[in-house]
Design a protein around this nucleic acid. Structure first.
Lengths: 239, 239
DNA sequence: CGGAGTATTGACATGACTCAAGGATAGTGG
DNA sequence: CCACTATCCTTGAGTCATGTCAATACTCCG
């Protein structure tokens, strides 16, 4: 199990970390403090931290992709978010991490010790507000996902997911149509509250309906954005 | 519609606000600042604020119960949380409220203007941290609910919900077995991502299985806590 | 090539939803 | 006090989307 996790797996390694610098230039107060922080690298499937680990650091993803998730003892899993370069992870943890963070591709993160963060907050009220806003943003995203999982059909969920990724990409590098999926079907299924079979079938349905191309299973090309938006049901989409 | 909301409805008014003071004595830094704040009262079904309203205040529930929810244009609704006396609502809103807050019973809230809150944060770093923690707590609850809705069966969801309410009551007044439901079946269904029919059927099933008594539809008595916990599946429950 | 991990597809089962009817509860007005 | 009405809750029958189980195919890598 542990050994397996250290071996970078097949599909994941098709994605070579492009080390895209975070799109937001390091202007805000939090980023200033991050500059001198240590950087750690992880292979695909390695954990940055696990659920229940003492929360020692806050991290910013520099390159790669991270899957934030929680586990139930019987093996059921809930993916809570995917973190992309520029995103913070480990925020909102008090004492210990309430969710695990696992790299889905080769990943590097910048590490800010919690103790240092606390000092910064004490001396710089702006940072406290920044943190508050960052967590508020996560709360918003969590509720959006809650909505998606609770009220929408499989078709709507996956369409919404793809559109959210598309918008995320657009903000980063301007490519709206092509989406590289840095996560497996299992990850997607566990995010959307579906099974991998349903995810796979829905992908196939989209392809048959001419909404997307799917030459490789990790490369989605949106051929009919309006159709996909219609399949998503509503403008309201995750993230 | 508006008129209807002002008329307190039947079931809801069976619950007379007991005006229980918040269990936590007003020791923490946020509560200090709340003491001089104005109090506003609402009838059942009245809104404290609506989704999209400019976020002018943060509120603490003094008595009664509030349903926090979001709407989709086609009428689908997601209840995000129920606020009890002592709980804060309206936190984490930046600019405008991302969710609506509707009293489910006669309710009174203490109102703290956002502008004042901002001033406080600037002058008192502890409050910034307090806010951060409060929102983190909400984030945790939202993810717990996400888990519930996404991965669990109707039986597990409702059992977990009842146990969560039981624990909430226990913390407040020590009564573990008796639960008064300050919300309708619709509210419960929209929280758990079910239909009212399924909620009702599951209640009936619990009664037939001897897990609960249900003399009135708003009064649940847990007769077999272990059985209910088993039905909930896992120790991990919402809130 | 062979093996491990991952993805697709099919047949079938089922839990929850939908639609529809009827019962319970509380407020209202005669 | 008793209809009368508006909500709310319960129950039943039938349907459907998604899950489950099982077999096969694809991709990468040693």
């Amino acid at each position: 199990m542990l050994a397996a996790e250290l071996i970078s797996t097949n599909y994941a390694n098709r994605i070579r970390a492009k080390a895209v610098p975070p799109s937001r230039p390091a202007k805000d107060s939090l980023s200033e403090y991050l500059a001198p922080c240590a950087i750690r690298a992880f292979e695909a499937k390695e954990h940055i931290y696990r659920e229940g680990d003492p929360a020692t650091h806050v991290y910013r993803v520099e390159a790669g992709h991270v899957c934030i998730y929680r586990m139930l003892t019987d093996g059921r899993r809930q993916v809570v978010d995917f973190a992309y370069p520029g995103d913070f992870i480990g925020l909102g943890a008090m004492g210990e991490h309430a969710a695990g963070a696992q790299a889905t591709t080769r990943t590097s993160v910048r590490c800010l010790p919690i103790s240092v963060l606390r000092d910064i907050v004490r001396s710089d009220a702006r940072v406290g507000l920044k943190l508050y806003e960052a967590v508020s943003q996560e709360l918003l995203a969590a509720r959006e996902l809650l909505f998606t999982v609770s009220q929408r059909t499989a078709t709507e969920r996956l369409a919404g997911f793809l559109l959210a990724l598309s918008r995320r990409n657009a903000r980063r590098d301007g490519n709206v149509a092509e989406i590289v999926l840095p996560m497996t079907r299992v990850d997607i299924a566990d995010l959307l509250g579906l099974t991998i079979e349903t995810v796979s079938r829905t992908f196939t349905k989209f392809r048959n309906d001419g909404l997307i191309d799917l030459e490789q299973c990790i490369l989605v090309t949106i051929t009919d954005p309006e159709g996909l938006a219609a399949a998503a049901g509503e403008a309201r989409v995750i993230s």
